[in-house]
Amino acid sequence: MKTIKEIAEIIDGKVLCCHEKSDRHIEHAFASDLMSDVLTVEMDNLLLITGLANLQAIRTAEMSDISFIIFARNKKINSDIIALAEETGIMLIESPFSVFRISGELYKAGVKPVY
C-alpha cells in the first residue's frame, strides 16, 4: 500500500497542508465534483480526487471523514481553503494532472475504488 507522500510524487503533486499525515497509507479513493455524491460514501479515511476547489469541498470532506483531497488541474487554492483544511485536519495536494489521469495513476499504483 502506498503512502500519501508516494502518491503525491506519482501525480507531480504539491502538498499544501497537513504534512504530518505524509506517512499515512491510502487504501481507497473516490473522484467526484458533486458534493452530494461524495456525501453518499460511507467509508472513512478516504482520498477524494476533485476539480472543485472551494470551501464546500473541505466542509464536505469534513462531514464525510475524508482525510485527503487531491485538487486536479492546478486550481487556484486560496488561503481560506487551506486554513479550513488545517483546522479540520484534511491534507490537501494540488496536481497539474486531470481527474482522469490522477485516477488512472492511482489505480495503477494499487489504490482501490469504493464502488
Binding site: D33, L34, M35, S36, D37, L39, T40, N54, Q56
Partner: peptide, 15 residues
C-alpha cells in the same frame, strides 16, 4: 458551480 445541484441531498438525508 459550488458543487451542488445533483438533486441527491433530500434522498441522502432520508437515507
Amino acid at each position: 458551480e459550488m458543487g451542488f445541484g445533483a438533486g441527491m441531498g433530500l434522498a441522502n438525508m432520508k437515507r
